[in-house]
Simulated scan of single mutants.
Amino acid sequence: MKAIAMIPARFEASRFPGKLMKDLAGKSVIVRTYEATKNSNLFDDVYVVTDSDIIFDEIISKGGKAIKSIGEHESGSDRIAEAVENIDTDIVVNVQGDEPFTQTKPLKKLLEVFKNDEAKNIDIASLKLKMEDEAEINNPNNVKVVCDETDFAMYFSRSPIPYPREKSKAEYFKHIGIYAFRKEALLKFTKLPINQLEAAEKLENLRFLAHGLKVKMVETNQIAIGIDTPEDLEKAIAIYKK
């Protein structure tokens, strides 16, 4: 089974413009993410896919591999689908450019999902992390996921789901923005229309569910700090200093 990693990277992030080029303990956020993915030694190749000359040049100058996007894209998955169409691979792992703490163990778990799926019932695999802190649960920057009894995703939301109507001991899981696709599922995704749920929550994973793609969730306990805000960057810097 051949697997590659693709890291979609936009420069003009709406909540934190230029965040991927911010300094994180001596290297840019995007280089930290690229190196963490490359150093996992799980992939036949790792690429950054970007619409930005600045990010493209940053990766190339550090000896990495980068692909310049041609078209305009609504999501990171759309961006990597364009790049991967003519690349020979079975599995495409979409690693978010603002996830510098990407680790080997959870990536390996995602790839094992497909190795163990001989019937090819799984289209996409992704990660979830249990949350306990109430502020983190209520933070709309933390996407929550609820699953069925076999860990297939039922819904993703920026709202805290499930809603604890009677203050029950509900479990909350944060969605970690790393996807592993069968190549054919990724190419299918790009041809599907954006539905009202995706438009409302601004979550591309809702397009998967709305069109019947099966998303298997894998629990992880990795440190999950996406760089969405300047405060997130400060947290990340503090971790590197430790």
Rank of each mutant, 00 (worst) to 15 (best):
Y163N: 10
N86T: 13
K235H: 05
I137T: 08
Q96E: 14
I239G: 01
F156R: 03
M131G: 03
V146K: 02
G26W: 01
K108C: 05
F16A: 08
F152N: 06
I30T: 12
L192H: 03
L192D: 02
V215Q: 05
F101G: 06
N205P: 03
T33E: 04
D228W: 00
E171P: 00
V145L: 02
A66D: 10
K62A: 13
P160A: 11
M6S: 06
K27M: 12
E85Q: 15
E74R: 11
V84P: 00
N116M: 12
L24K: 01
A153F: 10
D88Q: 04
V143A: 01
K128V: 07
Q103S: 15
D151A: 07
E231V: 13
E166V: 10
I124N: 03
N139E: 11
A236T: 06
E132L: 10
I122W: 05
I7R: 04
I30H: 03
K38M: 13
A3S: 13
K202G: 01
I225F: 00
Y34A: 08
K235E: 08
L110G: 08
A119D: 14
S126V: 04
R32P: 00
I54E: 14
E166Y: 12
T190A: 07
K169T: 10
K128M: 12
S157I: 04
A236I: 06
A25S: 15
F43Q: 02
G63Y: 04
S168P: 00
A180L: 09
A5D: 07
S126H: 02
K115Y: 11
I223S: 00
D151N: 12
P230D: 02
A135K: 14
R15L: 14
D23M: 06
K183Y: 02
K62G: 01
N139Y: 09
A66E: 07
A36I: 09
A3C: 06
I7S: 04
M21L: 14
K65S: 14
L192Q: 09
F11W: 11
V92A: 07
E231L: 08
K22C: 13
E231I: 11
K174W: 03
S61N: 15
T102L: 00
K169D: 12
T220P: 02
N121A: 13
R32I: 02
N221V: 09
G76Y: 03
P140K: 01
N139K: 11
M6T: 10
E35D: 15
L233Y: 02
Y163K: 13
K108Q: 13
L127M: 11
S159N: 12
F152S: 04
S40M: 10
A5T: 10
E166G: 04
K108D: 11
E74C: 07
S14N: 10
E85F: 08
E231G: 00
S40V: 09
K191G: 13
D88G: 00
D117K: 12
K62F: 07
K128D: 00
G18L: 09
E219N: 10
N121H: 09
Q196R: 10
